[in-house]
Amino acid sequence: MIALAVMGLSIGAIIGWNLPLRIPAVHARYLAIAVLAGLDSVFGGMRAEIEGRFDGVVFGSGFFFNMLLAAGLTYVGDRLGVELYLAVVVALGVRMFQNVGAARRLWLSQYRQKR
């Protein structure tokens, strides 16, 4: 599972590094927010995996849907003149910490039980 993830990540990284895709400065923030949402989904998936309730469909749909939602909220915020992307950053940031923390605690307790 981890091997698959690393493999996918490196394939994407190699493509991204060699494909000179230029994002205009105006739209750079949408990509940044989408990346953040993607990272959040990955951490959520990690936690679910350790908890033993990982579902590929939930993970895949959440990954893409959250990205679109985050970028969409940022867009709406820009239209309205409200810095909505800050709300996205805060919400996703807090969630990432929670998920990583929960995953770490679960993993530690599993590790101790094994010994």
Partner: peptide
């Protein structure tokens, strides 16, 4: 198919992260 899905998702993530990093350097 689940495994392929996983690889694709992570490939998308890796692609986006590197694209963002490269653009950020340029900006």
């Amino acid at each position: 198919s689940g495994q392929v899905m996983l690889v694709v998702i992570f490939a998308v993530l890796g692609f986006m992260v590197t694209t963002q990093i490269r653009n950020q350097q340029r900006l």
